[in-house]
Amino acid sequence: MSQLHTVNKSPLERNALESAITHAVKGNALLMIEDGVYGAMQGTHKSAMVSDAMSDIAFYVMGPDLKARGIDEARIIDGIKIVDYSGFVALVAEYDVTQSWL
C-alpha cells in the first residue's frame, strides 16, 4: 500500500516530522499542514532532515497554511510542492492510506 503521511506540528517543537520521515518508505508522500508547514522552511535546524529524505519521499506543503503564517514561498526548501485543499484531497485519493502523525 502506498502511504501519505500528514504532519501538523512544527518540527522544532515536536518529533512528529522526524518520526514520520523515519517511518515513511520509498515512494511515500508527506504533506505538511497547519503548524507542520514550518518544517518546509529553509535554514532551520530541521531543514537538512527534510532535504535528505527527498530522494525517497515526495514532500508537499499546504499553501493556505503557509500564507496564514506569513511564510513566503521563496523560503520553502527546493523540491517541496505547494498544494491547496483540492490538492490535499487529490493526494489522499492518490495514495492508498493516509496516516496522520498527531
Binding site: 493556505p64 485543499y85 483540492s86 490535499f88 484531497v89 487529490a90 489522499v92
Partner: peptide, 11 residues
Amino acid sequence: NFTKAALEDGH
C-alpha cells in the same frame, strides 16, 4: 476545508 474541497471535487 478538506471535506468541502473533497465534496466540490466530486468525492
